[in-house]
Simulated assay, not measured.
Amino acid sequence: MKRLIAVLLTCGLAAFEAHAGCTAAATAGPAGFGTVSSSLVYSTAQSTSITNAGLTCTPAGIELFNSAYFKATITSTQSGLVGPTGDVITYTIYPGSNNAHPITRGVAFDFTSFGLLGHNAPAAIPLYFTTVVNNVAAGVYSETLKVQWDWYYCTGLGVGNLCIGSDSGVGKISLLTVNMTVANDCTITAANIGFGSAPVVSAFTPVSQTVSLACTKGSAYTVGFGDGLYPLAAGGRRRMISGSNYLAYDIFKSAGTTRWGSVGAARRASSTAEINPGNGLGHNPGSGSQIFNYNARIYTDQSTPPVGAYTDSVLLDVAF
């Protein structure tokens, strides 16, 4: 007689489950470029970033499958940062710090593309911003971006890497402000003044030259020449020095005899420029510079000092 023994085989199939979820904050940022001089805004692309553009997730080691996505659609009523005079600073938005794969406004961008998120649900998604050079007026520039978030990904894995849970969101909005403060600035071109040489003070000829300024677009400013290192206390004349000896000279506005100084009415306003008078034209060479004429002369009512090389240093300043 055969004896049959039934053997019960059991196998426990344990599922691994990890919970995670994402939320979109109503407000993110701001992303600030800080304060930047107008000359740098024109000449050099400026960059800034934000570590969290509004979407925050609780990662739990979940592998992102081909069906997963984290999409941002960025829109705005503006075309860039808008300032107080209506000037616009345009910029490009990127998903990474290497300025690759620019994000097109109004088009959904999937951050799972290009390996940007690795294999796990992101704790936060950053954005990077880089300006295009712009010739703009001074002031505070800003733009509010509307970031629409849409996402789907697996939150739990079962046997055979089957997804047994998911998290998703559709049309969740985060508002993100981007801003920059543009500061007044000037690019100054001014040559040294050389009187040459002469045997007596009456033999020196006047020197006629110009100061060229490229200042912030729309800025009203004044230009001043300092008194130099060795001014004469009585009479306010500038002086050059050689050893312990002095040679008095001065700098005069335009082709006249009015001293160009650094205080009050002795300064020159941008509206008095001989070429392109008025407010600043900006840093674009095509806009042209503002030119101020002056003449410099050795005073002939002084005694001729001993032979020597006489020098001075004069500060040229611009005030807004």
Rank of each mutant, 00 (worst) to 15 (best):
G96Y: 08
A28V: 04
S39N: 13
P59C: 01
F33P: 11
G118P: 13
A68F: 02
N134L: 03
L127P: 04
Q148T: 15
L55F: 03
H101F: 14
L117S: 04
D87C: 04
S142E: 07
Y141N: 02
F114A: 09
N134E: 09
S142P: 05
A18F: 02
G115Y: 02
T27L: 14
A124Y: 06
F33C: 11
T44A: 15
D150N: 11
T92L: 01
L64M: 00
P102M: 03
A20R: 00
G106I: 14
N134C: 10
D150L: 01
T130H: 10
T51A: 15
A18R: 05
I103V: 04
A72L: 15
V36Q: 12
Y42F: 12
F65R: 12
I62T: 08
L55A: 01
T77A: 12
I93S: 08
S49T: 11
N98F: 08
G61S: 01
G83Y: 07
T90P: 12
K71F: 10
S43R: 09
V136A: 09
F65V: 11
R105D: 02
S38M: 13
T85F: 13
T77S: 13
A25T: 15
V147A: 07
A137N: 09
N134Y: 01
D150Y: 04
S142M: 00
T56Q: 06
D150E: 02
T35H: 13
T23M: 09
A137Y: 07
S39Q: 12
